[in-house]
């Protein structure tokens, strides 16, 4: 399996209410072991997956939002947030947890993985995918 493909995961649903966010994260983390190029998109209600201070205890669900902070350790360094989706929901990038990675080509400097993008930019990210997984 020497070939490297570009995997783009689109996350469109709220973290709770359906299982898609959690089962998407499970694919992303396991897929990371395959040394493929991985990009994540959060749009529509999917932007809620990254909001800070989640506390789903009241609905009896596990708070898996902390797991996103590990994405950098899995060499997932390109995380695209749809600006329009944030604005439609009265959110800004400051409402989301900051996801970072350590750049091995730059003395392991900590850098942000978050890229706030327009719909037009999202289209080109989606267009770059060899494999598109929509959750």
């Amino acid at each position: 399996m020497a070939e490297i493909k570009s995997f783009v995961y689109i996350n469109r649903k709220a973290p709770h209410g359906t299982i898609y966010a959690l089962e998407s994260l499970e694919v992303v983390l396991i897929g990371a072991a395959f040394d493929q190029q991985v990009k994540l998109i959060f749009m529509d209600d999917g932007v809620y997956q990254l909001t800070k201070n989640q506390d789903p205890e009241g609905i009896g669900m596990k708070n898996f939002s902390k797991t996103y902070a590990a994405l950098g350790d899995y060499d997932i360094t390109e995380i695209y947030i749809d600006q329009e989706s944030l604005e439609q929901r009265g959110l800004s990038i400051d409402d989301l947890q900051e996801l970072v990675y350590e750049d091995e080509d730059d003395d392991w400097k900590e850098k942000s993985s978050m890229r706030l993008v327009s719909r037009e930019q999202l289209a080109s990210v989606i267009d770059s995918a060899d494999v598109l997984l929509n959750f």
Binding site: M1, E3, K5, F7, V27, I30, G31, A33, F34, Q36, V131, L133
Partner: peptide, 8 residues
């Protein structure tokens, strides 16, 4: 992993 391998 079988899904990712298959996609590749």
């Amino acid at each position: 992993g079988q899904l990712v391998e298959a996609a590749v």
